[in-house]
Simulated assay, not measured.
Amino acid sequence: MRLDLADLRLFLCIVDAGSITQGAARANLALASASERLRSIEADAGVRLLERHARGVAATEAGEALAHHARLMLRQQAVLKGELREFAAGGRGTVHLYANTAALTGFLPGRLAPWLASRPRVQVELKERTSEEIVRLIAAGLAEAGIVADAVDAHGLHLQPVAKDHLVLIVPAGHRFAQAGAIRFAAVLDQPFVGLEPGSALQDYIGGHARAAGRELALRIRMKTFEGLCNMVSHGIGIAVVPQAIAGRHRRRGAYQTVALEESWARRRLCLCFRDWAGLSAPVRSLFTHLGAQV
């Protein structure tokens, strides 16, 4: 059968009205047009669907079967339309978001939670990458959007700052660098370090700047969390570079001192990164607006 949804809607209007004339009016069709389409429907079905009588029409057994399935199909169409409207409005779907370590651990949790809580049909898949990797993925069309540090070369992509993300050195209390107001990164590279686990975007970033200074970090231990890292530094295991917000968060429980880094790469800002605002999916546009995007 080649019936379309308009045919099914017309047929139901006629059956429910018990009249071809009234059914045509409900379907906003001229009587002649409705009658012609009804003949085509019956011809396509290969069976009589309506009984004509003096007071109107009534569905045959075959017509009742068609009406039953037509109601199911039109109801499903309404459900589909509703779901598509939710996708279009950003209230449904999956957000694939790439973010550097600082964004994942410090910036996103408190800001993402209320947005996600108000959208129960939205899922978010977070992936940690370095800022450089995120920019490469977006530039290549392999990722839609991400959150990166502004120190990265954006390759023509849009970067919108949304938060400060300065990196600082933390050292055990009593360490010879503890009273320094600020220090160059190269001056501390002879010290043992506490780092984050392999694959951490932030640790890769710090390691890259150490290599740029001609050294490899002497990592005594790698920790899965910033809490564990700060605890190790407090016990004198080594020094570490962490986001300033992280250093402040764990400072009350840790016996360490915070020292500013003089390098410009340590004075970062977190930025929303994307190719084109109009090309973003509705859920991502909604999230980025919530996070502070200026459009």
Rank of each mutant, 00 (worst) to 15 (best):
L270H: 04
L217H: 01
N100S: 13
A154V: 13
V171H: 00
H96I: 12
E227D: 10
L8Q: 15
V242N: 05
G207L: 01
M223W: 03
L287G: 10
M232I: 01
Q191S: 10
R119Y: 03
I246W: 04
V194W: 03
V79S: 02
H290N: 06
L219S: 04
Q203D: 12
L3V: 03
A89T: 06
T105Y: 14
G199Y: 00
I170A: 05
H69C: 04
G236F: 06
T101A: 13
Y205E: 14
A58D: 10
P198M: 14
D204E: 15
S286R: 13
A149E: 14
Y256S: 01
E64C: 02
L74I: 02
G146E: 11
P192S: 02
H155Q: 15
R52L: 13
I170W: 07
S234R: 02
L97D: 05
E132R: 14
D44M: 12
T60I: 11
L31A: 12
V295K: 06
A178F: 06
A154G: 03
P114S: 05
A186Y: 08
P283W: 00
R253H: 14
W277K: 04
S281L: 06
P109I: 03
W115M: 00
P161E: 09
F177K: 09
E133Y: 09
E263R: 03
A27E: 10
R267K: 14
